[in-house]
Write a protein that binds this DNA or RNA. Structure first.
Ligand SMILES: [Mn+2]
Ligand SMILES: [Mn+2]
Ligand SMILES: [Mn+2]
Ligand SMILES: [Mn+2]
Lengths: 219, 219
DNA sequence: AAAAATATTTAGATTTGTCTAAAAATATTT
DNA sequence: AAATATTTTTAGACAAATCTAAATATTTTT
């Protein structure tokens, strides 16, 4: 099954969007992929004909098992390349997403597996997201949104909810990285902001919007 | 100047073909790029409009200085990725060309320069071809075709004239690599074949066709 | 249960890169 | 210098991926 770069981008977007809702709407997909709904409908028909999607007109779309398998291959490549860029080429973790968006479409299976090996078979990418293995098995880590973390519980930042440059800039400024250890001190009802104790640093305040974008694992 | 993958492939092909003749014909290009002459004419017009080519209908084409600059960037990426695959990922030097054909189109300038640095700024790729630096400067090595090597002169294989799998298979079988040292013992007038003394090995025979595909530097 | 609003699909056009077949230009042979 | 062969360009078609505008289906509000 050979897919074009566009087709791969659609498959990957559906994969990510359906994590949340189970099923993905035409408009959601159009917004995510920066195209118009009419274009999405065309592509959904094409990918359905290739048996990669389960699609009922007007009723949204999901990946077929074949589609899911392909999506996992693309996600695997994306996250391995991100790891390569950060671990080997000294990119910042906030600079790698765009480049990986291109590299994920390189098709050589051998390349991916050799790269995986070269990197020491990493389990998580620089943003803390899990990397599927060569069989498409991806172990989800137990991670909790920072908003849902119980106060006075030690936890470690393990992923971020978006790769927007604005978010990453803010994290850089607050010196919050993947692996940063912290503990919620207070939750403020008024604006849902948090006071956080960062290990080795002082107390800082985090807005609701920022907390929502941070995922931690309890340690 | 943003180019599509197709446009980049044309620019690169013209670069390689004009090394020999100075000017490149429509048919030559069509054969090289596995497309039809009519398609080539269309693309030549488009790239000429972008000021990357010097093209007179019916009279062949050359790269403009702008086109040459872009070609060198693509060649740089191709050869750096080949070096990466061989040096870091343990690919055989006969397996890398196709993958590099895809990787050469990744656009990040930062990626290329970081990769160059990561590899230790190599001057030659696994086939012995010189790698342009980030300013597009490429130092040609003084290399001689094996057919033109004077008998009883020690030399070292430093590049091959094609990356065809058939050629590379033959070289593997004869245990000839980049860096192999050898000396011509006899030249046979009848079929222009050569008897070669390979350092550390015995004498072997090499056909005219094979000798033509091998370039050596005198040591 | 209508009416209104929203979401989705269809229809028709556009761009890019390719093709085949035919026409025109150039090169080679007689 | 014609005639012939070869090369190159033009003309017209097509598939992929996108768009806008219009039609249709679904959902929400009244
Ligand atoms: Mn992508
Ligand atoms: Mn990531
Ligand atoms: Mn290429
Ligand atoms: Mn090479």
């Amino acid at each position: 099954m050979h897919l074009s770069i566009s087709e791969e981008n659609y498959i990957k977007a559906i994969f990510h969007l359906q994590e949340a809702d189970g099923t993905v709407s035409t408009n959601q997909l159009a917004a995510n992929i920066h195209t118009k709904p009419a274009s999405v409908t065309d592509m959904l028909k094409k990918l359905t004909a290739k048996r990669l999607l389960l699609y009922k007109p007007y009723q949204g779309v999901r990946l077929s098992s074949e589609g899911r398998k392909l999506a996992l291959e693309i996600v695997r490549k994306h996250r391995l390349w991100e790891s390569f860029l950060v671990d080997k080429l000294q990119f910042g973790w906030d600079e790698v997403h765009e480049v990986a968006e291109e590299l994920e479409h390189i098709s050589s299976k051998k390349l991916v597996d050799k790269l995986d090996q070269f990197l020491g078979n990493p389990k998580f990418d620089p943003h803390g997201d899990p990397i599927p293995d060569s069989n498409g098995v991806m172990h989800a880590i137990r991670q909790v949104n920072l908003l849902d973390l119980k106060p006075h519980t030690k936890a470690e930042v393990c992923s971020v909810g978006s790769q927007s440059p604005e978010l990453l800039e803010l994290l850089k400024h607050k010196q919050i990285l993947i692996g940063t250890r912290l503990e919620v001190q207070h939750k403020f009802e008024f604006d849902h902001s948090l006071e956080i104790q960062v290990e080795g640093k002082g107390k800082i305040n985090i807005s609701q919007q920022l907390a929502q974008a941070l995922f931690v694992k309890i340690i």
